[in-house]
Design a protein around this nucleic acid. Sequence first.
RNA 1: ACUAUCAGCCGGCCAUCGCUCAUCGCAGGAUGGGAGGAAAGUCCGGACAGCAAAGGGCAACGCACCGGUUAACGGCCGGCGCCCCGGUUAGGGGUAGAGAAAGUGCCACAGAAAAUAACUACCCGAAAGGGUAAAGGUGAAAAUGUGAGGUAAGAGCUCACGGCUUAGGGUGGUAACACCGUUUGCGGGUAAACCUUGCGUGCUGUAAUGCCACGUAAAUCAACCUUGGAGGGCGGCCCGCUCAAGCUGGUAACAGCAGGUUGAAGGGUAGGCAGCAAGACCUCAACAGUAAUGUUGAGGCCAGAUAAAUGAUGGCCACUCUUUUUGAGUACAGAAUCCGGCUUAUGGCUGAUAGGUUUU
RNA 2: GGCCCCGUAGCUCAACUGAAUAGAGCAUCUGACUACGGAUCAGAAGGUUUCAGGUUUGAAUCCUGACGGGGUCA
Length: 129
Amino acid sequence: MQGLHKYKFGKEEKLKSRKGIQLLFASGNKLNQFPFRCLWLRVPADEGVRLAVSVSSRNFKKAVHRNRIKRLMREAYRQHKSILFERKDSRGIAFVIIYTGTEMPVFSQVEKAVKTLLEKISGFINEPH
RNA sequence: ACUAUCAGCCGGCCAUCGCUCAUCGCAGGAUGGGAGGAAAGUCCGGACAGCAAAGGGCAACGCACCGGUUAACGGCCGGCGCCCCGGUUAGGGGUAGAGAAAGUGCCACAGAAAAUAACUACCCGAAAGGGUAAAGGUGAAAAUGUGAGGUAAGAGCUCACGGCUUAGGGUGGUAACACCGUUUGCGGGUAAACCUUGCGUGCUGUAAUGCCACGUAAAUCAACCUUGGAGGGCGGCCCGCUCAAGCUGGUAACAGCAGGUUGAAGGGUAGGCAGCAAGACCUCAACAGUAAUGUUGAGGCCAGAUAAAUGAUGGCCACUCUUUUUGAGUACAGAAUCCGGCUUAUGGCUGAUAGGUUUU
RNA sequence: GGCCCCGUAGCUCAACUGAAUAGAGCAUCUGACUACGGAUCAGAAGGUUUCAGGUUUGAAUCCUGACGGGGUCA
């Protein structure tokens, strides 16, 4: 099942609940990796791995630019999310990635940063102590 | 080739991977649809939904030449008036354009005086006093302009030609209005100052609203009230109307219990479905109309998410920049209930119409 | 998505019932005082009143439209 969905990023893997997002912002673990900031939290196993993506409208006033950045971030996560699935325990992860840079990125930059970010999270999860 | 207006299209194709919706399938999956002219600003107008539907008056807000168009509009189309440009002719452009002769206010500085005029001045007169507004000169604006008569000096005091204006008339036009002749008068500007007149307008908005699921609050405190009534409703206010919660004891004031309204503090949920995608819809053609627009016929189905889909990478082609390669880039910009407008942001290509210049 | 408010010197605010040089404090600069600096005193500079158009003789003020910033909702 997981192998089949290796490069997909469907509705079930997006963090959509307003309540979950508020919980994440209230008590999530913080992690900085320029140009991103990440908040993540362990959740029960039936939640699965869920991601939300965000760009501040203070840095990017045009909606078309925010959409562009969010699409690049989702695409990068889709290609490298298998890093997170090679984990030891079966609990789920909920996390949000926020773009904090002030300039329009290109895909290669986003891809590189997302990859290192996912490796960092994977390291925290697999070695909690 | 250039300028203006109108209409249309935005990079094209291929490969791999992916997102969202619908349909089919037990499932893996397959097929099909998937941003705009402005989706933007939220400046107007509606559809739709809820609340309320005895009224009357006032206030508030909006609009303001005429006719047409439309579901409606402050939009659009055509005309009229005014202003500007133009060998001041043809023509082109702009225009929030009712009323200043209903009333109130304001008009700095300068000036005699800024709106019931009189400083210098002119005339009569011995003076007291009276008559007058031409000349001075400031200002954005100075008491209807020019000429003649008239007079002591003057003055629409009178006359001629004008300007504006009141009333009623004739001709043309649906009308605004234009022209003609009669007549009343001479009142500076400002209504995007208050205001007056005419016409119109319920309020709140898809986070409306309905249903389902889950969950709690039943309680506490304060104030007021229980038919001589707190408070609620009828658009904001008033009148008026209407709804609205009581018993016991006591002569009464009041007390007790109960109830009602408002507020404080506090508690709970913030999930799902509908609304929500076939409509003042789109394309083409014909007809009516100067046009906006309308009618008829044929064909078509064209996003529907909810921390929010419509994308990424590679290759070739087209164009621009950079010194060739390399490289960078390809307008403005991303639906959120849906329509009709307005405003703003916008690079390029194609076509049509109009204009003048150059070449043949 | 709806509704509401505000833009004045580098900063914080006046002047908002139109009137001609837009004012005050802090900050900046110059000079004096001091051995130097601070404080103090004197003086100066700094403004397309967010932008564009209109009404008016005259606009920061009134009107319209843009641009920018902020707040609020079940």
